[in-house]
Design a protein around this nucleic acid. Structure first.
Lengths: 259, 259
DNA sequence: CTCTATTCGGTACGTTGTACGAGGTAAAAA
DNA sequence: TTTTTACCTCGTACAACGTACCGAATAGAG
């Protein structure tokens, strides 16, 4: 990952903000009216990173987008850490929870996975934010409820339901990260593939003298010829998703047999 | 993720450094002897982050550990980005590739997964480095060869072998990240669980008014009672590993039937 | 009208990565 | 041996960062 992570800020204030819950401020706001809202700040930050990447996320840049100065932001948000939490939760609210759902659990779970994949496609910077301690706001919570719904009512224990949703979610994130990395590699091709090889081939040939990497050398060549690239994230995604769902299917069948 | 990422530096110099390949410097080193080696610098950096976490990784801190000043480091390493690449590759060299391997592919693949899990346990900061574009040094390469070896010679195509290894690797990283997050949450418990609930319960109760999260509320309670925590990463790891391997087993059987 | 809570935003501090260049050192060239 | 030259060391400096602090402006409450 890179650069940023969620869950770093003050937990209480973050939680209150996530749910847009006025804290010790009983509507008696006396001073000058605020020029913006928390949502405006969060949306400006999201627009910024969508357009310029996570590296461009600085309080100064967000302020510029809003046409204000740095320190004003701190009246809306306690700090950068909390802002990131709000951003992450906000984008999860964007993708709507569909009203109707497929019949079987497998189709539902696949839809859940593809929804999340789509979210990462829209906001690739999510993949560069460490969300191992996710902000428990409405966006994340709604999605968690939606995801659990995919495996509800099919005879699984609560623990199994959570484990399955966690497994799928983790897989999607991993696959999406690979895809995003490949994408950025193509876009930021300061050096072409040909140039890269020209410079690096001497080193690689000298070091990978055939005997050290018999399997990797062969596999790498095969994959390279097939895709004209070192890997094909789209294939890895579809392949992995099918395997993960197969594994889950086996488990569900086993559980059903036991009862 | 958080903070740092690999593959950001100059590709050529990085590759040469990874393989400890003298570049345009034909051993005619004329000036004063260097006080350290690249390995010493890399090891100092690894010791630093092992002890103090990835946030403590600054060129100044590394220099301090070595008893030298910041700018001297730049004679060993082009910059921080390349240093991170070297660190990541170096720790992969630490875990030795076992001489003897289990018989069946499944046991081999499981061993591969558990090796990687162990690596993350030793160097949790790896999980906070974005390695979506991994440094192709000896450490990573040796491990890739070793991992591919687990599914070599069982009738799979080169592409399938790569897909399977990628799938397993992605899963391990995801599971390890959760485990590490939970670990850090416990260790850095500035507020106890009781305190946390005391402050946050009013907000959560008001907002999660029962009807909004029927499934998540129930599942969350069940899991919480079972583990006395929001989750059990050890369980998620074992559960997920079994499912992933099951899914792969099904695929291998299917492939074998077709031939 | 006065009081006071609140927002705005200038200034400033500490920390970061690293560009630049002066000064010292030791091997190569004379 | 003397001179040259390549290289290492590291002090200084700069831009960018998050944000603490505080004065000035503002507007509802008394």
């Amino acid at each position: 990952m890179s650069e940023e992570s969620t869950g770093q800020g003050d937990a209480d204030r973050t939680l209150a903000l996530l749910w847009r819950h006025r804290l010790g401020d009983p509507q008696g706001s006396r001073g000058p009216r605020q020029k913006f809202s928390v949502d405006q700040v969060v949306n400006a930050a999201i627009a910024l990173v969508d357009a310029e990447g996570i590296d461009a996320l600085s309080m100064r840049n967000v302020a510029n987008r809003l046409g204000t100065r740095v320190m004003s932001l701190y009246t809306y948000v306690p700090g950068k850490a909390e802002l990131i939490d709000l951003m992450v939760d906000a984008v999860h609210l964007e993708v709507p929870v569909p009203a109707t759902r497929p019949e079987g659990w497998r189709d539902r779970l696949e839809a859940v996975a593809r929804d999340q994949w789509e979210l990462y496609r829209k906001h690739p910077w999510l993949l560069q934010v460490d969300t191992s301690r996710p902000p428990l706001g409405p966006g994340i919570s709604d999605r968690y409820e939606y995801q659990l719904g995919a495996v509800e009512g099919i005879g699984l224990s609560d623990l199994d339901m959570d484990s399955i949703v966690t497994l799928v979610g983790g897989f999607v994130a991993g696959a999406a990260r690979s895809a995003d990395a490949a994408q950025r590699l193509v876009e930021s091709s300061a050096t072409t593939d040909a140039q890269w090889w020209e410079v690096n081939a001497p080193i690689l040939e000298q070091v990978m003298d055939g005997s050290r990497y018999p399997i990797a050398g062969r596999v790498g060549s095969s994959v390279g010829e097939l895709f004209n690239a070192a890997s094909n994230p789209q294939h890895a995604w579809e392949f992995g998703l099918a395997r993960v769902l197969d594994g889950i299917e086996q488990y569900i069948e086993k559980v059903r047999q036991q009862t």
